[in-house]
Nucleic acid binder design. Structure first.
Lengths: 386, 386
DNA sequence: TTGTAAGCGTTATCAA
DNA sequence: TTGATAACGCTTACAA
């Protein structure tokens, strides 16, 4: 054993190449390549021998060489365009990433993760990745209502899957827009009966999404069933596609039940605890405050509950609270929060699978994730009389 | 504009190569390479022309080709060995990653992030990355008290930096050296099994860490100053290096103040809200329950506060609570939690810088991050009389 | 069933 | 100051 300091510094052991294997197995390099890649053209005997030698030497294909010779880069990219402060608050991303990798790593595909400040930087990064041939495809998260990324990626020919729903706004009753011809094959997404035919979520890229409309309907079923008639939705960033979809769904659900749109509506925030609390304060100060509030993430929900506590407003006695997205937070507060539970790692797995399908030349399509369910806990109950 | 469906599928535009540039600028490929890499050997005139053409064509070096021709892979790796469920709860990692990338992306270096189940898989992954030449270096997080990774990485010759502190127990208080932002050169120091205290933090790899001992001292200063004499530390995973350091520091600080070790001690958990709550319950059930509890993360602290609330134990009236690591959680609960605030993105930046330094042949050393400060909020106060 | 050789896009080593 | 030319490790026609 050499001295530790030296060990860290000594020349890395030479990595074995197929040439080494060829020499040692007494065959040509191409035979080795064929044998190792499960291609026909080598005898079972040779194949076995080559395999054994490769194993002995601990050979792994040099990813650069493989990528260079026209093969794939063996990596996918994921860009997070969020200001650094808002990163930590949500458990969503790491769970998503963990699901994505469960699928990718099974195929020996790496994931490049990059955190950037804004959408322009994100687009620039896609261009660079494409030019550098660094990734075989990307997963686009946080789709916006007006999103430049799908067009860019389609133009570059960089395979991509939109994660988290159609970038285009959800079906709007005002816009009968079923006319667009496209190669889209909605896998499961069948627009609900009361609405006109939906625009294919995104004509340019395959999409994996959750049905926010149905989820919102579930939440409203729960609250309406309890007797709530004044329900406010404290949403997240206004530019995000799923925010738009949720807001739209709330309207639809309110109309369906004949609820007053002034008493059932949405307000947008930046997802932070600060804005969540602020919005809650404003609502509670109103002449006729809501009896139930639906928050678009867990942090805001907890912040809202805290505001209620400050003012001595009992939850759920005088105010019911629902969190869209569950996490440890919802379970540690007092009372524990009723939450919309999603299988986020599962969603990540689905997205990764779809990306692989696109790479394999699969059709452009829209896939829906598992419908989330509402976990009723202690923060929702019947509204106070009146 | 072609039909959308087609756009997504059409052959990617060909990426420009230096050959294209050479042809267009009327020079040789090697001249282009020299010009683009700021190497001497081309006239100012040629250099400028080449640059301009490259710009026009939107050329970016093909990362695979560059890596293959002996250069670096242009990527660093970060492996997270944690069960999927415990991933989301902490805001720590995404913030760390965001700091790391601030430094890496300035140098056009990508970050490979991989989430795995256990340490064995992590080690296997390092081997693969090394064999594939996929990364130029790695950042090792969650160092353990008995950690196989540094030895493996040193043996592979894969540059690495340990993030989050020495894997060995921290330097004993007898040695006042640990204070300064020091850079030790342990290359010559042979670790001796008989004197663990004198062991340099890590003889094999450069290390970036936070001074948990001083941080714990600050927390104890605060609590002791308020009058607390029964203080329990609900720590995280027992195998982690920083857990060991914190436990050790608590002992040291208790001894220094002549406190009873039975009344000032640590218990370990898995960081989950469930175990945090459970440990809290057990403590509060004791004959002489603690008057203050220090939690090793924010989630457990909130869970603990919730347990106190359940039992009608006023915080901070009858129980003071401190969270090690701040987050939105600590600010949205009621009362807001006193927390140890660290600059996590800054820590990530430091780690990335150190890794770059190691790659540039810098010395093996130990760097200390900024000392965290205690943000006193509403969850700590004087203990009840008696 | 095998081996030879060309090519992927760079960088690096030579002569010119 | 230049321009051929040979690596780098792998895949893949094309020949044998």
């Amino acid at each position: 054993m050499t001295a530790p300091g030296e060990a860290a510094r000594r020349k890395p052991a030479r990595r074995p190449t197929i040439k080494d294997i060829a020499r040692r197995a007494g065959v040509s390099e191409s035979a080795v390549s064929f044998a190792l890649n499960d291609r026909p053209g080598v005898s079972q005997d040779t194949r076995a021998r080559v395999r054994r030698v490769a194993e002995e030497l601990g050979w792994q294909a040099n990813s650069a060489a493989r990528a260079l010779s026209g093969e794939r880069a063996g990596a996918m990219g994921l860009v997070l365009a969020r200001p650094a402060q808002t990163l930590g608050v949500e458990s969503f991303f790491l769970q998503l990433v963990s699901g994505i990798q469960e699928v990718l790593s099974a195929r020996q595909i790496a994931l490049l993760l990059q955190v950037v400040e804004d959408l322009d930087t994100e687009c620039a990064l896609y261009r660079r990745w494409w030019a550098e041939r660094r990734v075989d495809g990307v997963l686009v998260v946080d789709p916006r209502t007006d999103d430049p990324r799908p067009e860019l990626l389609a133009a570059l020919g960089l395979p991509a899957v939109v994660v988290g729903g159609p970038a285009a706004p959800g079906p709007d009753p005002a816009e009968p827009s079923a006319g667009e011809p496209s190669a889209t094959e909605p896998a499961t997404a069948e627009p609900s009966a009361t609405e006109p035919a939906a625009t294919p979520p995104h004509p340019l890229l395959s999409t994996v999404w959750a049905d926010d409309a149905k989820a919102m309907a579930r939440i409203l079923d729960h609250l309406y069933g309890l007797g709530h008639r004044r329900i406010v939705h404290i949403a997240g960033l206004p530019g995000l596609a799923h925010t738009a979809r949720r807001i739209q769904s709330l309207r639809t659900e309110a109309d369906r039940r004949g609820l007053d749109r002034r008493q059932v509506h949405s307000v947008t925030t930046d997802y932070s605890d600060a804005e969540g609390a602020e919005a809650t304060r404003r609502l509670l100060d109103a002449a006729r405050p809501p009896t139930a509030i639906v928050y678009d993430n867990d942090v805001m929900a907890v912040a809202g509950a805290s505001v209620a506590a400050e003012r001595g407003i009992p939850v759920p006695g005088a105010l019911s609270i629902v969190a869209w997205d569950d996490s440890a937070l919802c379970r540690v507060t007092h009372p524990r929060l009723t939450a919309l539970v999603r299988d986020t790692p599962g969603f990540g797995r689905l997205a990764a699978q779809e990306l692989l399908a696109v790479l394999d030349g699969g059709p452009l399509r829209t896939v829906q994730g598992e419908l989330p369910h509402l976990e009723a806990r202690e923060s929702t109950a019947m509204p106070p009389p009146g």
